[in-house]
Amino acid sequence: MPATTVFPAPDLPVALIHDSDQTFPVRRIFCVGRNYAAHAAEMGNEVDREAPFYFTKSAHALCLSGGTIAYPPGTEDCHYEMEFVVAIGSPAFRVDESAAMASVWGYGCGIDLTRRDLQGAAKEKRRPWDLGKDFENAAVLASLVPATDFGVIGEQEIRLDQNGLTVQQACLSDMVWSVPEIIAHLSRFYHLEAGDLIFTGTPAGVGPVAPGDVLTGQIDGLAPVELTISVAE
């Protein structure tokens, strides 16, 4: 008799694809820390230029653009962080920078929500950032755009508006570590596979959200990401 699960297995989270009925199954979410020098400075940190570093979010932290979420539990200081997201579409393991982009399926606008007070407390005690970074609805994602429709990553503007006021603004070229560098480095430690997402870091200007806030993030050539924050549960 074949084995059965003790409860129904949850469905794999999926991202939407712009102007398509297809969806993109999400396997894992990797996030790059301190990838814009100005953001690192505003947080009181220096950029480690020897190698990028990462934290992760559960795939079930995915939150599709356009929705309304409750203010996250367990925090009094939740922050927005606008990000350029890379969607992996084919295997990459120990790839060179010159071959890294062959594994990219597409790109999207994302918002990394952060329970900053919990992250700060973890940093002080030299503990992992999980409570600050990996929670429900913490990885907000717009519909993805195929890489062939986006073109070369360069001077595209990345911007986030909070209630109609621009709070973050930079260019993708401001990233300390480029997308090929990130993929090549990350692939030394993981077998990257189709369905993996990489949030590539946030520009300066991060700040708190409050119930009633409307966040709208844009990157030239991509579908915008939108999120409304409601009262806490």
Rank of each mutant, 00 (worst) to 15 (best):
F93G: 06
R94Y: 01
R94H: 09
R94T: 07
R94F: 02
V95K: 01
V95H: 00
D96K: 11
E97G: 12
S98I: 08
S98W: 02
S98C: 01
A99K: 15
A100H: 12
A100G: 13
A100E: 01
A100W: 05
A100I: 04
A100D: 06
M101K: 11
M101L: 13
M101F: 06
A102G: 12
A102R: 10
V104Q: 02
G106M: 00
G106T: 01
G106I: 02
Y107T: 06
G108Y: 03
G108E: 03
G108I: 01
C109H: 07
C109V: 15
C109K: 11
G110E: 00
I111R: 07
D112I: 02
D112R: 09
D112L: 03
L113K: 08
L113Y: 03
L113G: 09
T114Y: 03
T114Q: 00
R115Q: 13
R115H: 08
R115D: 07
R115C: 09
R115S: 07
R115W: 04
R116W: 03
R116S: 03
D117L: 08
L118K: 14
Q119G: 12
Q119R: 06
A122C: 10
A122G: 08
K123L: 11
K123A: 12
E124H: 10
K125H: 11
K125R: 15
R126H: 11
R126S: 14
R126F: 08
R127W: 04
R127T: 01
W129K: 09
D130A: 14
L131A: 15
L131H: 11
G132N: 07
G132M: 09
K133V: 04
K133M: 04
K133E: 01
K133I: 03
K133G: 08
D134Q: 11
F135C: 14
F135T: 04
E136Q: 10
E136K: 15
N137I: 02
N137K: 13
A139E: 04
A139G: 14
A139D: 10
A139W: 04
V140M: 06
L141C: 11
L141W: 01
A142E: 07
A142Y: 13
S143K: 14
S143Y: 04
S143L: 01
V145A: 14
A147H: 08
A147F: 08
T148K: 15
T148E: 15
T148C: 10
D149V: 00
D149A: 14
F150Q: 07
F150P: 06
F150G: 13
G151H: 00
V152D: 13
I153T: 13
I153G: 05
G154Y: 07
G154P: 10
E155T: 12
E155W: 00
E155F: 01
Q156V: 06
Q156N: 10
E157V: 15
E157S: 14
E157G: 09
E157L: 13
E157I: 13
I158W: 03
I158K: 13
I158D: 04
R159W: 00
R159T: 11
D161N: 09
D161H: 14
Q162Y: 02
Q162A: 12
N163Y: 07
G164L: 04
G164P: 13
L165Y: 01
